[in-house]
């Protein structure tokens, strides 16, 4: 289960989406995420799913691969779905004590789960198609105005990209520690949620110790490779807008326009 975490991983492929400037992808993803909260009807979701589908198809990231990203949040999805199903007032289909299933509840459940799923999928398609360094460079550039307020933009971006790099390593390490402790009789499977959480404590302590040690070694390695902050740094692939990036922004505008139109004329 723990190896299924694909959040923030890069999927190497050569596609029009991969080639887009990181800034385009960051901005469009943000716009897309915000747009998910602007509608409450069928037509809006249809437009959002269509847009996501087109981007996914263009990106050459396999459908099953991106869906795996939903696995770790499956529980949250189900929980919010259930809550909405049972606690939405409206025309009742059947009632059962305090809970009642209503038509409105069913609709709301579907919409809320879809919205959450699209939020995560939208964000993961960005990280799947953008290397961490490009992402860092894009963020750094977009946030550059904040430098006036003394925000350490380069450092924050660097930290983020390193965090992404170490996700799979720490996941593997967790797996190893859990297996080592299971071999010595630790039990992670049985008991209620609270007991299971408690049994994770002996996993977390060595994990943190090793993460801190890794951080120290990484800092040394970065030092020895002449890292001295963002000052005077160049890039192998400097960010430069090209025709296709303008086209990307235009596509995003078309999506927003389509959304506005469908939401207005939608009969639901």
């Amino acid at each position: 289960m723990i190896r299924d975490i694909t959040i923030g991983q890069y999927y190497a492929a050569d596609s029009p989406i991969h080639r887009l400037d990181a800034r385009v992808k960051i901005v469009v993803t943000l716009v897309y995420m915000v747009s998910l909260f602007t509608f409450q009807d069928f037509a809006g979701y249809a437009a959002a799913i269509l847009f996501f589908g087109i981007v996914l198809a263009l990106s050459k990231v396999p459908f099953s691969y991106i869906m795996r990203g939903l696995k770790p949040v499956l529980f949250i999805l189900l929980l919010t779905g259930m809550l909405n199903l049972f606690w939405t007032p409206g025309k009742e289909i059947f009632a059962w004590g305090v809970v009642a299933v209503t038509w409105e509840g069913i609709r709301k459940m579907i919409y809320i789960t879809l919205r959450l799923a699209l939020l995560i999928l939208g964000a993961s398609i960005m990280t799947f198609t953008t290397t961490p360094n490009q992402l860092t460079a894009g963020l750094e550039r977009l946030l550059r105005p904040l430098k006036i307020f003394r925000v350490p933009v380069h450092e924050v971006a660097m930290m983020m990209s390193i965090a992404l790099r170490f996700i799979p390593i720490l996941v593997e390490e967790t797996d190893r520690i859990m297996k080592a402790q299971a071999a010595r009789g630790a039990d992670f499977e049985s008991g209620n949620a609270f007991q299971r959480m408690k049994s994770m404590l002996p996993v977390l302590v060595p994990l943190f110790v090793s993460a801190i040690r890794r951080a120290g070694e990484l800092a040394l390695a970065m030092d020895s490779r002449c890292y001295h902050g963002g000052e005077g740094r160049t890039k192998m692939y400097p960010l430069r807008y090209r025709g296709r990036d303008i086209f990307g922004y235009l596509c995003c505008l078309v999506y927003i326009a389509a959304l506005a139109v469908t939401v207005r004329i939608s009969p639901f």
Binding site: T131, N133, I162, E217, L218, M222
Partner: peptide
């Protein structure tokens, strides 16, 4: 430790 000195998810970077 090879893992603790590689800073990017892509070899060329």
């Amino acid at each position: 430790n090879p893992d603790n000195q590689i800073i990017s998810n892509v070899v060329e970077e």
